[in-house]
């Protein structure tokens, strides 16, 4: 009798254990997840994902592995993710580069072959001048541009980038002409502004924040929707110029990705953005949390894509 009870208990336990294991198998996630970036190790996109992975520890119960697939200006990374299994174990850490490249070159895959999962951050863009510049606000710049059309040297990154797009938005919104000057990176541009080789620059706030604190450059305004948290920098919108352009950073998976995995990540991103240690970090580098769920993100990317295409057309880079 006793023996039988024991057998029943053991059997029950075994069944329970098996079904628990089976349940564990079914639940997403149950194996390491790969986060793909088109950046080289140490570059912006790479650091974003590695930090995200670090602070997601404890929220995502499986290891997160960052894989660098540089080359082809994001085309290789997009192709890799687009052709990955749809079970949600390969995700792409996206930036606007993902939209630009297919517009400028013929690529096999574009963001339309990906499933937006969630947006995480906006990197705020700002307009800045050297501290001894007479300009105090975007309005001064525009007045001067109206007086001397095409003479103001407006430093920005490569055409096709969001920085360069801002220069063009300023021209079309204020109906003035400036001379956009291309630089390969935000750092190079900052040196050119500090050295007086260009009159003003547009860039990420994080790149120039320390020069602002040191009093070497002055920020005129941001191109964000709301003021950058923790600063008193006015937005272009407040000044009457509705120019809002952001560098987004978010996650996408292959098209047709498992809805359960999407839901899991939407929750995980919201949780990690609330984690105090992560908040302390992302505030220190002036990244603005900008969570969007997969529906909002899809709409946002579609809109951004149209804006980018229209702008590339206006500067003659696409037909």
């Amino acid at each position: 009798m006793r023996w039988n009870v024991l057998r029943v208990v053991v059997t029950l336990l075994a069944v329970l254990g098996l079904s628990l294991a089976a349940l564990g198998q079914a639940r997403y996630p149950n194996k390491p997840i790969v986060l793909v970036t088109h950046s080289s190790p140490g570059a912006g996109g790479d650091i974003f994902l590695r930090n995200l992975a670090k602070y997601l520890e404890g929220i995502v119960p499986v290891p997160l592995v960052v894989e660098n697939r540089p080359g082809g200006a994001s085309a290789r990374a997009v192709a890799y993710v687009a052709t990955s299994p749809k079970d949600g174990y390969v995700l792409y850490g996206a930036t606007p580069t993902m939209l630009q490249t297919p517009l400028l070159t013929k690529t096999q895959y574009s963001y339309l072959d990906l499933q937006p999962v969630a947006n995480v951050f906006f990197d705020p863009m700002i307009l800045y001048v050297r501290a001894d510049s007479p300009w105090k606000s975007l309005r001064d710049v525009i007045d001067e541009a109206a007086r001397r059309p095409g003479q103001i040297r407006f430093g920005a990154a490569t055409p096709g980038s969001v920085e360069h797009m801002i220069a063009h938005h300023v021209m079309s919104v204020a109906k003035v002409k400036v001379q956009p000057v291309t630089f390969e990176g935000g750092g190079d541009l900052l040196v050119a502004v500090l050295g007086g080789h260009v009159d003003l620059g547009v860039g990420e706030y994080a790149e120039i924040a320390s020069q602002v604190q040191a009093g070497k450059v002055r920020v005129l305004n941001s191109f964000t929707d709301k003021r950058i948290p923790g600063t008193a920098i006015p937005t272009a919108k407040e000044l009457g110029y509705p120019i809002v352009v952001e560098k987004f950073r978010g996650l996408l998976g292959p098209k047709g990705m498992d809805p359960e995995a999407i839901a899991f990540w939407e929750k995980a991103i919201q949780q990690v953005l609330r984690k105090p240690a992560y908040q302390m970090y992302y505030r220190s580098v002036y990244q603005v949390p900008a969570y969007m769920d997969h529906v909002q993100y899809k709409l946002y990317l579609d809109r951004m894509n149209v804006t980018l295409r229209r702008y590339l057309k206006s500067i003659g880079l696409v037909e």
């Binding site: 055409p159 360069h164 956009p180 291309t182 500067i315 003659g316 880079l317 696409v318």
Partner: peptide
């Protein structure tokens, strides 16, 4: 090389 250079989009950037 010259022939290929004919296919480069001009752009108005510089």
């Amino acid at each position: 090389y010259f022939h290929q250079s004919l296919f480069i989009a001009r752009g108005f950037a510089d």
